[in-house]
Design a protein around this nucleic acid. Sequence first.
DNA 1: TTCATATTCACCCATAAGGGTGAATATAGG
DNA 2: CCTATATTCACCCTTATGGGTGAATATGAA
Lengths: 120, 120
Amino acid sequence: MGEYENAQQLDAVFSAMADATRRAILARLAESDARVTEIAGGFTISLNSTSKHIRMLERAGLVRRSVRGRDHVLSLDATQMQSAARWIQRYQPFWEDRLASLDAFVTRKRVAANQGKKNR
Amino acid sequence: MGEYENAQQLDAVFSAMADATRRAILARLAESDARVTEIAGGFTISLNSTSKHIRMLERAGLVRRSVRGRDHVLSLDATQMQSAARWIQRYQPFWEDRLASLDAFVTRKRVAANQGKKNR
DNA sequence: TTCATATTCACCCATAAGGGTGAATATAGG
DNA sequence: CCTATATTCACCCTTATGGGTGAATATGAA
């Protein structure tokens, strides 16, 4: 398989998505832009920890920040998610093959069970 | 956005994919099954480090191992990749919107440039 | 049995994550 | 000017990563 992506960028994107809190932040920003405090309000962790998560999302390029006075308004930028999606998509044949063979197995089993019994 | 996935599993899958060496191992296994030493041969890092990477991939469910005597044969299991792909895919509208609005912006700018001298 | 190969185990080291707290900074609003 | 709010900075602590080395273990082969 090709290795023509930006490895470091993928590192940052995948590791940014590797945390449930950060995924929840992304989900929150998918609904609407929000300030840091607004986002932090949805979690039990401290404002400071939330701020750090946001910084990681920013470094990964998944979130943009626009400072308006003392408020920092954050918005989702899904561009880098597409890179990650494209990387994973190259493996789609593999999980489809797996499902296909599982399906074939189930079908075989069902056919065997139907020897003498008619259902479904 | 829904939060009905297994968060811990996604944590493991995404963090497993967040390392270039491990992504290369997955790419290698996409070509064919391989033993630990065969995989390690493709990297400059030690056999031990490779072994650890493989263990992480195993824990994330991305790689399966079948022990044949002293050889451990590894194979790709892309099932968990599909979970990751599904999670990311929910954001597809966002990167498509972004491309669409960028395109609209460029078009607008081009139109403006063609109407004499319009700038900021 | 003896030797070679394949793999992991048990450590060591440095760095980054993820959480916390308290202080500093910047801006909004009286 | 003064005070409250929004956010970050500078630390502390614990755990995980990513790399290394040398030893242990298991199996194949002679």
